[in-house]
């Protein structure tokens, strides 16, 4: 049968020649291979000191953005939950009470917003679906844990800090091109 890769070698049990029987050429050949590896560049990265450089559009842990006045952008429309192929997002909507205008931008907001990080596949569809520029994926890594429960991230983890100094930069993912694309009239929520 013809092989697929053309790399297979025919194995035979023919008598070894004298050069093969004294082993030494084969041993030297093997040693030359190992010494080449001895001096070759190592692929390992010394993790805590060195970090592997991420792609500019790396998709890691999500963030729920606030606007410039520090109000939550999310209106709990549920489009992200619908878009999510892994069904990782759930939310409970609530109505904004008078006097809460400084907390929530729109009249409706998400009282509970949870992403199950074990289900999430970090595809970024929630970010594409969001009409309010509220959810983004960042270059932060989701920390590991020994239990399942802590992987359900609520608003306490996802929401951006109020302090302007500690805002999370998402400019890598919210480029001019992305904003242009999102204003496409073809999308239902832009009509």
């Amino acid at each position: 049968m013809k092989s697929l890769t053309n790399r297979s070698k025919v194995v035979s049990d023919k008598k070894m020649t004298f050069m093969e029987r004294i082993y030494i050429p084969a041993i030297l050949k093997g040693m030359s291979i190992t010494i080449r590896h001895f001096f070759s560049k190592k692929a390992t990265i010394n993790y805590p000191e060195q970090k592997r450089e991420f792609s500019k559009v790396y998709r890691g842990q999500h963030v729920l953005k606030r606007d410039d006045l520090g109000r939550e952008r999310c209106t709990a429309c549920g489009l992200c939950a619908v878009a999510c192929p892994a069904e990782a997002i759930t939310m409970v909507a609530a109505e904004r009470k008078p006097g809460e205008e400084h907390l929530y931008r729109e009249e409706k907001y998400a009282a509970i917003y949870e992403i199950n990080m074990l289900r999430c596949i970090f595809c970024g569809d929630c970010e594409d679906a969001c009409p309010k520029e509220a959810i983004f994926l960042t270059d932060r890594i989701v920390a590991s844990d020994t239990e399942r429960k802590p992987f359900i991230y609520g608003k306490d983890i996802l929401l951006e800090p109020l302090d302007p100094q500690q805002r999370i930069d998402i400019s890598a993912r919210q480029t001019e091109k992305v904003i242009q694309f999102k204003q496409n009239k073809g999308f239902a929520h832009n009509k």
Binding site: I35, F39, K42, T44, N46
Partner: peptide
């Protein structure tokens, strides 16, 4: 051993 196996 590590160096010959491309490790550190």
């Amino acid at each position: 051993a590590a160096f010959m196996q491309d490790r550190r």
